[in-house]
Nucleic acid binder design. Structure first.
Lengths: 137, 137
DNA sequence: CACATACTTTAGAATAATTATAAAGTAGTT
DNA sequence: AACTACTTTATAATTATTCTAAAGTATGTG
């Protein structure tokens, strides 16, 4: 809860969450890294709880991740296996999918020559590209 | 099982499935239509079983849809709600997502100016674009 | 700084989508 | 017609997620 955690606490506060110990640890675990992080709630829970004597409950992981996502600190996406994936990279970007593995593609690596207009009464919120990979031969 | 069902039976056979009555009915329900069809297995089951006295079991719907998908007669995709959606349009194409509603976008409506290379050892299997919509104001 | 109060955490139950099981039925071959 | 392997089905099991309600804690107020 001290000063060096301010940035992680701010993410919680701006998500409408009080900075409890559990939440601060989750926020730190998610955002205290250089590279972007892709995860499911189950994966997050397992990797955090593995090293803890006092486990954080499943519900707290779900609640916290949802609030962070609703506030825009996490991005959600889906693969074809009925679980929600989250991405700490919230800038507009795209993904390679390679047998369940996810790799970010920077937004400027993909540009369009042609895009359809939104149906009337609607506008485009975002455009997401998924490039599926397979082995070379 | 007669001649007019040949096309639906062929889809089953080419998926490695014997053309049983249940499967032929499912195949017909899916492919005997002009417009492309988006559905979840649960929706398919409900709409088919509603008008039937003798219901087809859940497992048969899942098995049949999976086999048709593996054989390439259906396309699978995911929204952010942990259910698998299927599309009878298997040609390469894209989607608008508008609050859970799915609308096809013909392949030629989207073209790229720039696309990234696949990582080494990999090649691109397909490129899928999702355009999320929101209301105009 | 103690208190009250509203927000949190937690374990466990509930739900939803999907998959597994194993007994009874059927297609396709001989 | 009979046999065998594949199917169907009801039901149980599993997985991801959400709900619930009791016990715990952050925070503003005095």
């Amino acid at each position: 809860m001290n000063n060096k955690n301010k940035i992680f606490i701010d993410k919680l506060r701006s998500s409408g969450l009080r900075p409890t110990n559990q939440r601060v640890e989750i926020s730190k675990f998610l955002f205290n890294r250089k590279k972007t992080f892709h995860f499911t709630v189950e994966e997050l829970k397992n990797s955090m709880n593995l090293k803890r004597s006092k486990k954080i409950s499943t519900a707290t992981f779900y609640n916290t991740v949802h609030a962070l996502k609703s506030a825009g600190h996490l991005k959600e996406f889906s693969l074809e296996n009925n679980t929600s994936y989250y991405d700490t990279n919230i800038t507009s970007h795209h993904h390679f999918f390679d047998n369940g593995k996810v790799i970010d593609i920077k937004s400027d690596k993909i540009t369009f020559k042609k895009l359809p207009d939104a149906p009337k009464g609607k506008k485009i919120k975002n455009v997401e590209v998924v490039i599926r990979l397979e082995n070379n031969n």
